[in-house]
Amino acid sequence: MKFKLLAAVAAATVFAASADAAILRYDLQGTVPNKFTLRFELDTTRAPSTSTSQGLRYNGVALTYTLPGSTTPITENGQFDGVTFQVLNNQGGLFAGFLEGAPNNNNRVQVFGPELFSGSTSSPTMLTGVFLLSDIQRQRITDPLQVNYRLTVTDVTPGAVPEPASWAMLIAGVGMVGGAMRRRQVRVLRPA
């Protein structure tokens, strides 16, 4: 019995793998007055709609944004909307807005800064954290980044399922507590 339990725990631990699927929320906020605000979510299991050496694009992403100088949020259903993660001259960035030929082509934002994914554009791994961005593209890598946007990327995956290693630790812990309780001898004291 002990051998089977140890073998099961060892197998679960060895074959445990991290889950790569996540839903990421992107919140872009201007750090100076009269800048866009933007929010959208991206499912990382989804393949890019297009990818080139200069970036990757996800079509059909629903966007919620506020135009510069306004306080009224606008929500687009994603029919014409898309998000492009750029790779431009040793820098990255983000373009969000309407596809070409769609109505209201002026409602879009383009910001530059660090790359927002790792790996290749055909097989990206999206990054989480806080990124400082600018709406002015640097011409050379030595040009300073004029920060006027903050992008916060957080994982909002609902009800994530525990990984196999977590289940293995839980089962092993319950088994050890049960084994300790079973071996415990109870002494009964009888009055003389």
Rank of each mutant, 00 (worst) to 15 (best):
T142G: 01
L94G: 01
V147R: 06
S118R: 09
L132S: 14
R140K: 14
G101I: 13
S120I: 05
F98I: 04
P68L: 07
T71H: 07
Q91C: 07
S123A: 15
F131Q: 11
T125S: 15
N77M: 10
N107G: 02
L116S: 08
A96P: 02
G78E: 04
T71I: 01
P114H: 02
S118V: 14
L99E: 07
S120F: 00
V147A: 05
S70I: 05
N104T: 02
N106E: 14
V109H: 00
T128I: 10
G101N: 12
L145C: 08
F117D: 05
G129F: 04
Q110Y: 02
Q137K: 15
L145E: 05
L67H: 00
Q79V: 12
N105H: 07
T125C: 04
S120T: 15
L132M: 10
P124G: 14
P124K: 04
N148G: 09
G119C: 10
G82A: 08
T125A: 13
G101A: 10
T128L: 04
L88M: 09
R138A: 02
L94H: 02
E115R: 15
V87Q: 03
G92C: 09
G93E: 02
G93A: 04
N104Q: 12
P114F: 01
T71F: 02
Q91R: 11
Q137Y: 02
N105G: 11
L88V: 14
V130Q: 12
P144G: 11
P144C: 09
S134Q: 12
A102Q: 12
L99S: 11
E115I: 06
Q110S: 13
L133A: 09
S118G: 07
V83R: 03
L116M: 09
G78D: 08
F98G: 06
V130H: 04
E115A: 08
R108K: 13
D135Q: 11
P68G: 07
N89T: 07
